[in-house]
Design a protein around this nucleic acid. Structure first.
Length: 898
RNA sequence: GGGCGUUUAGCUCAGUUGGUUAGAGCGUCUCGUUUACACCGAGAAGGUCGGGGGUUCGAGCCCCUCAACGCCCACCA
């Protein structure tokens, strides 16, 4: 009788919070208390827009499994936690909530200060919730280094980055066409726009009877701002018009002045082959405007749609109308004038604001931009160059400064994207976020410096204007794109811009995981910031994971109401089960499905591990842990076999964990736990423990294997393993236990092969029992001829549930069901039960199979091309198999003769 | 219009550089309450690896091609 009490069912609820508290109190989450080579992971900071979802459960499992593994392997492991203020999403969310509460225009009604305060309160609450949820998931992060993208140290880093980039001339203020959300009243970057297919009407028309060129548009109302007509330079139809200017009165404030220009980008085959150029309301047309300007042959720029989504004064007759109304009226005017030639339905893609959901308008505005193509002073390269180098040759051709992306295909996506990168619009007109650190001198009237000074880029308000001497300044009202702060996450969290020990020790970070949906938004920008600011890559390895979907492969979404709250799953099952379920079946870059049955299966595994431990720990009087391998005394085949399997397991799991192949690692562990250890060794151990000779050695091996197994499971299932460990060992946390390497121990291939035979024989006997429905209590006798299992009779007897196994030289007489196993034959005594016909048929079938098998092997081995070209080992294995099969066939032949 | 991914048992997925007769979990069927576990045990059924072609001694894996589904990108005015 053991001294321990363990309930039959593992109740995670009773242990998880206490275990987490014990880990946190131990100090091992903090790498300052660890030795070894640093290994760093920065937690992708969850947005403070709400609570954690399943995707976070996946991410936390991936990160925590990796960091726990590395910690146990003796690394100075840092997993740094944090949250993201998520400027636009958070403000959008709070505004929506306020609107639901009846504050229909939060910005106007509350004003900047009050609205920001409302958002801050919401964000804080959400932050607190999120941090407690991270603990529930078991994530072993260093809370002493907790960061927030919107806290003071991060604000300093952001301002400093802005300042340096401004001084390097990379950040500039300029008027360009931006992506404008009328609903959100803010710009957004190219990456925050979703393209959706829509059907729209395409109108083909002329500006006036005097303009000889016909154009087409899905947004005719924007044509009020056209300043040119572009055609392909080689298009003979229009060649004679190039360079000419046509005037047209379409009802705008002043008559349109349309210059015909040549541009390679125009597709002569599309529509009429002529394109009405609207520089103010199209990114492409704006590019043409810039090209023309550079060529010294400028065209105009007339904004006809304003930030409020209404037609501007320049739209003349249409001023004040919404774009839709203006379109309607303009089209009917075209009809009346006989200018409309065609009206057809087409599908094309429109840009939609990620957060506000309205169609993005292209509008020219003065904003802050980051130039990604300009050469960085003193470096001879642009930001784009740095981003490219980091994933190809390594930064400055240094291979140790190379970011490896898994799976590799995302590297190509990344590189393609870099080539098409446009300047990054940094400023947002929302209020929740890092304020642009730029101050405008208010020396004169209307907020303009008397001496015309430049904007002052400074972390705090400047003392006085160097030009006019005033102390009156106004800060830029805009805020920074939220990704500007998250892009600096790998180093702002370590104290940059100070030169700290942390920065020297933990940067570049070792490993990063993220979903593919933020590859452009985040991964690229982290590389940009880190290579710019530190001349270092942000991380060495990036693991890109897929999305979790529901049982039917659909995204989890509020509108589908198919959400699963990870906290509910933890409450109902366990954090370990959630972790295992979420990680099993995932491969890098691919989506995977998640549903409750997976967690149920995982929880059964957790319980199985619990019960294996319960059996061992409660039935062994004084389990001794920490024995060395060589202290063990394997006495039986099963002993030698399970130890060899354990060595193999360690090898596999270590390799898989190192390579971030979590699913494979957990699959190997599951297989060993349930099949090898529980179903075979534990059952075999019962017989061994009943015998004086093998009692002690078996106990030792049971404890040894359990102890190792818990260790190898720990990174994936930390709670249950730690809980069991506490029963085994009361002076050390499993969290801080060293990963036992078994690299120096040889596999026992002989034992593995012999055990495979034994298992086959046992299965065969069980099969016969099942086939003949032999009652479990019915005593049966089994005779074995050949098979080399003498010496293992008692194990076979207990595993197969038979009364007695005897070995004889020849097949016995009487009523037997038989089966050939390896080079032996098993005869199960079944007096009065044997269905001779069925037996015969069964044997004939088995014999036939063996013959076919032999034939196929013979054919292969007779093929000279095969034997000469295939590796020696493959041929040798096949020869051995052929021998075995022939041996087997002899037994069948012998049997059918007898 | 480009590009990428997926397609293996009823369902969800493994299958590592091409090498024995393709695996697991769940589900299904049969049997079983022997003190670790009914959140269990034993046994069984179930697959021409999406179709076609090719390379090779040998293909689930490599090449070509077609198909279905999904995703991403794009300046179709």
């Amino acid at each position: 009788m053991g001294k321990l009490e363990m309930p039959k069912v593992y109740e995670a609820k009773n242990h998880e919070d206490q275990l987490y508290a014990a880990w946190a109190a131990s100090g091992f989450f903090n790498p300052d208390n660890l030795k070894g080579e640093p290994f760093t992971i920065m937690m992708p900071p969850p947005n403070v827009t709400g609570v954690l979802h399943l995707g976070h459960a996946l991410e936390n499992t991936l990160m925590d499994s990796m960091i726990r593994f590395q910690r146990m392997r003796g690394r100075k492991a840092l997993l740094l936690p944090g949250t993201d203020h998520a400027a636009l999403p958070t403000q959008a969310k709070v505004e929506k909530m306020l609107m639901e509460e009846g504050i229909l225009h939060p910005r106007q009604e509350l004003g900047r200060e009050k609205l920001v305060e409302k958002i801050r309160v919401f964000a804080e609450q959400s932050r607190t919730t999120i941090l407690s949820q991270i603990k529930k998931l078991g994530t072993s992060c260093d809370w002493s280094r907790l960061a927030y993208t919107f806290d003071e140290p991060r604000n300093r880093a952001v301002n400093e980055l802005f300042r340096r980039m401004y001084e390097d001339g990379l950040i500039y203020r300029g008027s360009r066409v931006v992506n404008w959300s009328v609903k959100g009243q803010s710009t957004s970057s190219d990456d925050e726009i979703e393209h959706v297919e829509r059907t729209t009407k395409l109108y083909t028309f002329r500006y006036s009877k005097d303009v000889p060129i016909t154009i087409a548009s899905t947004r005719p109302e924007t044509k009020l701002g056209d300043t040119a007509i572009a055609v392909h330079p080689d298009d003979v139809r229009y060649a004679s018009f190039i360079g000419q200017t046509f005037a047209a009165d379409v009802g705008a404030a002043s008559a349109l002045c349309l210059k015909v220009i040549a541009d390679e980008q125009v597709d002569p085959a599309f529509g009429t082959g002529a394109l009405g150029v609207t520089p103010a309301h199209s990114q492409i047309d704006f590019a043409m405007y810039e090209t023309q300007k550079a060529k010294g042959d400028p065209i105009g720029l007339i904004p006809v749609i304003g930030p409020d989504g209404k037609m501007t004064a320049q739209a003349g007759f249409y001023a004040g109308l919404s774009a839709e109304e203006a379109r309607e009226r303009f089209v009917s005017w075209l009809k009346e004038e006989g200018l409309l030639e065609k009206e057809e339905e087409i599908t094309h893609s429109v840009g939609i604001s990620d957060r506000y959901g309205d169609v993005i308008e292209a509008i020219p505005m003065t904003q802050w931009w980051l130039d990604v193509q300009k050469e960085i002073p003193g470096r001879g390269k642009s930001l784009r160059d740095l981003m490219r180098e980091a994933v190809t040759t390594g930064l400055n051709d240094d291979p140790s400064q190379k970011v490896t992306i898994t799976p590799d295909r995302f590297t190509k996506l990344y590189l393609d994207r870099i080539e098409h990168l446009r300047d990054w619009c940094l400023s947002r007109q929302i209020w929740w976020g890092h304020r642009i650190p730029v101050w405008y001198c208010q020396g004169g009237k209307n907020g303009v410096c008397l001496e015309g000074c430049k904007p002052q880029v400074a972390v705090g308000k400047p003392e006085r204007c160097p030009a006019c001497g005033t102390t009156k300044f106004e800060q830029d009202p805009d805020t920074l794109d939220t990704w500007f702060s998250s892009a600096s996450w790998t180093f702002s969290t370590l104290g940059w811009p100070e030169s700290t020990d942390d920065l020297r020790t933990y940067h570049p970070t070792s490993w990063m995981q993220m979903g593919y949906e933020i590859l452009y938004l985040w991964l690229m920008r982290m590389v940009l910031m880190s290579t710019y600011a530190l001349g270092e890559i942000p991380f060495r390895e990036v693991y890109i994971h897929g999305m979790l979907r529901d049982k039917d492969g659909r995204k989890f979404s509020k509108s589908l109401n198919n959400g699963i709250d990870p906290l509910d799953v933890i409450e109902k099952y366990s954090a370990d089960a959630l972790r295992f379920a979420v990680v099993s079946g995932v491969s890098p870059g691919n989506d995977s499905r998640f549903y409750e049955e997976k967690v149920e299966a995982a929880q059964r595994l957790v319980n199985k591990l619990w019960n294996i431990s319960r059996y061992i720990l409660t039935s062994i009087d004084e389990p001794v842990h920490g024995r060395a391998f060589k202290e063990l005394e394997p006495k039986t085949l099963a002993d030698r076999w399970i130890l060899s399997r354990l060595v193999r397991l360690e090898e596999d799991v270590s390799a898989h964990m190192q390579a971030a192949e979590f699913s494979q690692a957990s699959e190997k562990l599951r297989e060993f736990t349930w099949s090898d250890f529980a179903d075979w060794y534990l059952e075999a151990s019962k017989t061994q423990r009943a015998q004086e000779l093998t009692k002690t050695s078996t106990d030792d091996i049971l404890v040894y294997v359990l102890e190792h197994l818990l260790t190898y499971w720990h990174p994936i299932m930390p709670f249950v393993t730690e809980q069991i460990w506490s029963s085994l060992c009361d002076d050390e946390l499993l969290l801080a236990h060293a990963w036992p390497s078994m690299r120096m121990i040889d596999l026992d291939l002989k034992a593995e092969a012999e055990m495979a035979h034994l298992q086959e024989a046992v299965s065969a006997i069980r099969n016969i029992r099942s086939q003949y429905a032999v009652a479990p209590k019915q005593k049966i006798r089994v005779v074995m001829v050949g098979g080399n299992l003498e010496g293992h009779a008692s194990v076979v007897e207990s595993l197969a549930g038979i009364e007695r196994l005897v070995f004889e030289a020849q097949a016995p007489q009487g009523e037997y069901a038989s089966v050939v196993v390896g080079d032996g034959q098993v005869f199960v005594s079944l007096e009065g039960l044997v269905d001779k016909q069925a037996e015969h048929a069964k044997l004939a079938r088995a014999q036939q199979e063996t013959e076919t098998y032999i034939q196929s092997l013979e054919a292969k081995l007779a093929n000279e091309a095969f034997t000469s070209k295939a590796p020696e080992q493959v041929v040798a294995t096949m020869r051995a198999n052929l021998d075995d099969a022939r041996q087997k066939l002899k037994l069948y032949v012998h049997h059918s003769e007898s």
